[in-house]
């Protein structure tokens, strides 16, 4: 299968196989007008199988926090004029805003819809995020 190389845009590489579609939805890529490719189960020396996403647009403002939250092992390649000009390595973000929603019915966010849903990373090792308001553990 051949997918054209992109000239100006972003390649999300080393996505754990099966996570590509989740990331696609979290990043709201179906809202974009530019060409977007989601490649599933590509062969990978490092992972065996991996997913890849290519976004053929230099305008797209990538939310690195979302990607870091879903899988900090993903690499972000920035392509300019057909050349890889930057490779970004991610880590779990300290703070997530409006990526997760608090499910605690006793949380203030359950009744005040306009409040941003903010979560803080409280345990990096076990990837635990807690609501900034009620400290309930995030259920992703």
């Amino acid at each position: 299968m051949k997918i054209d190389a992109i000239k100006n845009g972003i390649v999300l590489d080393h996505i754990k196989a099966g996570t590509g579609m989740i990331l696609y939805q979290f990043l709201k890529l179906d809202d974009l007008d530019c060409p977007v490719a989601l490649i599933k189960n590509a062969s990978s020396k490092k992972l065996g199988k991996k997913d890849i996403i290519k976004i053929d647009s230099s305008e797209y403002n990538l939310d690195l926090d979302v990607i870091g939250f879903i899988d900090p092992e993903i690499t972000v390649d920035i392509i300019k004029n057909g050349v890889l000009c930057e490779k970004r390595h991610l880590e779990l973000p300290e703070k997530l805003t409006n990526i997760l929603t608090c499910k605690n019915p006793r949380c203030i966010t359950s009744v005040e819809q306009e409040l941003p849903h903010i979560f803080h990373l409280t345990d990096r090792e076990n990837k635990i995020y807690r609501c900034a308001y009620c400290e309930a553990k995030a259920k992703s």
């Binding site: 203030i108 308001y133 309930a136």
Partner: peptide, 10 residues
Amino acid sequence: RHPKEGAPLV
């Protein structure tokens, strides 16, 4: 005092 958790923080 508020019955909802996090209200005083807000």
